[in-house]
């Protein structure tokens, strides 16, 4: 539906909105997972270094990962959307 204009002609040279959305979503998720994973790992490493119990280390790393994903996802998504538009 999104590929066609009112007259039923296919838009030329314009990336359909849905496909762009999907691409942006995929790239954003991967980027966020990388950032959040790095932060969670750093947390885990620091907690291990300071001798925290395993549960605290693992639980903390999961919580840090979750919050980092939530914080970074909108920022990263908007960044990739801007990049796609720029293209």
């Amino acid at each position: 539906m999104g590929d066609y204009n009112r007259d039923g002609h296919k838009h030329k040279g314009v990336m359909p909105v849905e496909r762009t959305e999907r691409n942006v979503g995929r790239v954003s998720t991967l980027t966020c997972m990388a950032i959040s994973g790095a932060l969670a790992l750093s947390f885990f490493a620091l907690a291990s270094l300071l001798g925290y119990p395993v549960v605290a280390r693992v639980g903390g790393a999961v919580w840090v990962f979750l919050l980092s994903m939530i914080v970074s996802l909108p920022l990263v998504t908007s960044y990739w959307k801007r990049r796609h538009k720029g293209d």
């Binding site: 620091l46 840090v64 919050l67 920022l75």
Partner: peptide
């Protein structure tokens, strides 16, 4: 909301470490 989640992360890290 974004700020609050970032704050929640900071609060967690502070009280944890």
């Amino acid at each position: 909301i974004l700020g609050v989640h970032a704050l929640a992360l900071l609060v967690f890290a502070f009280w944890f470490f």
